[in-house]
């Protein structure tokens, strides 16, 4: 049973973008190409790099892929990489982002989060759970905004909603108190909307129970993010995330993508790179 969602958005420093002449409206419903234009402009005007990219993390590729309803694998579990137009568009978007000079390489989680919480970089597209990390810097209250995820250009079914991470409950079929466990999950996690208000306010966890979205906590605005109704926005996007079947080999596919990221950032041919990733994944999942 799914309970915690990783619905994505573009977190950005509204003060820095304002300095460069951009408001929240300028970031609403844009494509990645438009984000590159904005990022280039911001870099010219403020000298700041827009996005931190970890060359050892394929999360951004996965976010882009799912936003257009695609994945490394087809619904039946077969590999869907070399001929996956959405995946290749995600690769070339990544390539464009890096080539435009609006990304900065960071190594590992600490450097990544440190990069945007210290104000060194300006924005990051990631899961809603990043709210906790960002709000930990109380002095930056009112300086942050959350825009919908930019959309892939020229891809059928592209949306502004995607997912990164999240978690589910499982009950083992051989568990001693199986019925009780299922009952507990169904009443609390499966239907108690108030419970989801509590964990949203207390833990910043956006639950995946769609009914919980009507609750009071979800409709409140947050001064930290300039008084925007961030939770309402996230839960709206949550309802729009294209469904994909992750399968069981995401780690293998991620490793194959990461192995090819240097080739991608140095301007390699996207078709050849996708073919190489495809070959490695097929080899690994046999």
């Amino acid at each position: 049973m799914p309970f915690d969602s990783g619905v994505t958005g573009l977190f950005y420093r509204s003060d820095v973008l304002q300095e460069a002449g951009y408001t929240a409206d300028d970031l609403a419903d844009i494509t990645w190409d438009r984000l590159i234009e904005i990022g280039t402009d911001v870099k010219e005007k403020t000298g700041k790099v827009l996005l931190p990219f970890d060359p050892n993390d394929a999360g951004i590729i996965r976010i882009m892929m799912q936003s257009a309803g695609s994945w490394y694998f087809n619904a039946d579990g077969s590999v869907n990489i070399a001929d996956n137009a959405v995946f290749k568009e995600a690769l070339s978007t990544y390539q464009d982002l890096v080539a435009s000079g609006i990304t900065k390489p960071v190594a590992g989680w600490t450097e990544y989060t440190g990069s945007f919480t210290s104000g060194d970089t300006v924005a990051t597209p990631t899961g809603v759970w990043m709210v906790g990390t960002i709000k930990a810097n109380a002095d930056q209250s009112g300086m942050w905004g959350i825009a919908p995820l930019p959309k892939l250009d020229g891809v059928e079914g592209a949306t502004h909603a995607s997912n990164l991470g999240g978690s589910s409950w499982y009950v083992l079929s051989s568990a001693p108190n199986k019925e009780e466990a299922i009952d507990f999950l169904a009443t609390v996690w499966g239907s108690n909307a108030d419970f989801y208000q509590d964990i949203l306010v207390g833990q910043g966890a956006v639950g995946s129970l769609l009914a919980a979205r009507e609750g009071s906590a979800y409709t409140e605005s947050d001064e930290f993010f300039g008084g925007a109704p961030v939770w309402q926005n996230f839960s709206d996007w949550l309802g729009q995330i294209p469904a994909v079947n992750y399968g069981i080999f995401t780690n293998e596919a991620d490793a194959a993508v990461i192995a090819q990221l240097p080739a991608l950032t140095s301007g390699g041919n996207v078709d050849e790179i996708a073919a190489a990733i495809d070959a490695q994944v097929r080899q690994q999942v046999q």
Binding site: P55, N56, A107, N251, I258, L261, P262
Partner: peptide, 25 residues
């Protein structure tokens, strides 16, 4: 220090064994 990265550049045989056993299926 590097988690085998970036892009497998510091992946060693032992780390690969670990990935095959505990990270991947």
């Amino acid at each position: 220090i590097t988690l085998g990265g970036p892009s497998d550049s510091t992946l060693t045989l032992s780390l690969y064994i670990y990935n095959l056993s505990f990270k991947f299926m």
